[in-house]
Write a protein that binds this DNA or RNA. Sequence first.
DNA 1: ATCACCATGTAACTCGTTACATGATTCC
DNA 2: GGAATCATGTAACGAGTTACATGGTGAT
Lengths: 183, 183
Amino acid sequence: MPRTTQTDLAVLAALSVTPMTGYALREAILDHLGAFWSESFGQIYPALSRLREAGYVEAFDGERTGSSTYRLTASGRTQLVDLMREAPVRTPPRNGMLLRLFFGDVLGARACRELVAEYRDLATRQLAELAEARRATEADDAGTSQRPYQLMTISAGEHSARAALAWADETLASLDALVAAGR
Amino acid sequence: MPRTTQTDLAVLAALSVTPMTGYALREAILDHLGAFWSESFGQIYPALSRLREAGYVEAFDGERTGSSTYRLTASGRTQLVDLMREAPVRTPPRNGMLLRLFFGDVLGARACRELVAEYRDLATRQLAELAEARRATEADDAGTSQRPYQLMTISAGEHSARAALAWADETLASLDALVAAGR
DNA sequence: ATCACCATGTAACTCGTTACATGATTCC
DNA sequence: GGAATCATGTAACGAGTTACATGGTGAT
């Protein structure tokens, strides 16, 4: 089994939709995949060099001097499908908020309340962003074959954010009860 | 702002409950925090050395030769509280399943269905584990001051897993419709 | 004795971020 | 001409995993 870079997969997948510069790639990933994926420049540029050497993408001069736009090659598309078929890599969980809450008696109910309240805000913001993304996706006439899949990922975010919200409300109530009961 | 290791926080927090060996530490983290935290030996042992040099933990000989049990010192408890008060580190999201689903037309509806079905299974397993954890926590008479907090983290897992389950069911139906409509 | 488990530790490797350096273009 | 934005790239750093090496203990 050869090496598999998660970044390669994301980059090839994004380029399969439309050719882009490295800079635009990052923006596209942030805009469209931001809820469940992220890449930084420090990953994207080395990845593009690697993929070009492997023949999976090719660069052609962009509109500006000193910028190049990348497009997927035929072998790049094959590689993309291969990478997609590999089992997703599970990132080991690391939720700093829940870690702190688990040991909440060290921190005190008041401080925990703040942690959870912040988490609730985050979920609210995510819901708003997802609503916007849903509207944009449903309005977009191009790429109708991609739309149902994109809506599924948006729905995943919505389910998750609503669950976070419900949990936060329930937990804030419990924490308030703890505070009222003399910490 | 000095360095902050996530691992230090987890280790100090776990040792605040009861003294342990490095090996037991890993088991405890896996058992009790597994749903939202993870540490490997490669992190734990160096962390223990570091923390001992800093005076945050001290080792005393364990029951076996060649094993030492670590306990939190007074300054370690102070440090623990300080670390807890720091804002949780946000891990950038990386969900390989959703990445693949977003570009689902590259992969095809059938393969996507399998991805989602696996995800559903995972959520089901998590729910079972959480039910067990809830029972164990509610039955445990020791450390009653920690119990409400532990139940909150269990509830977080339950909300999240139930949301994953609901989404998966909804999405499997959509994918079936796509397959039926001629892929 | 041998197997399973307890226990410790390190080295190699991958991944990923942040900060920095650099420069072009566009808009005002 | 100055600011914001587009664009590329690298170096330093931190975090984390896996695999390996090593040995003690307890039960059968």
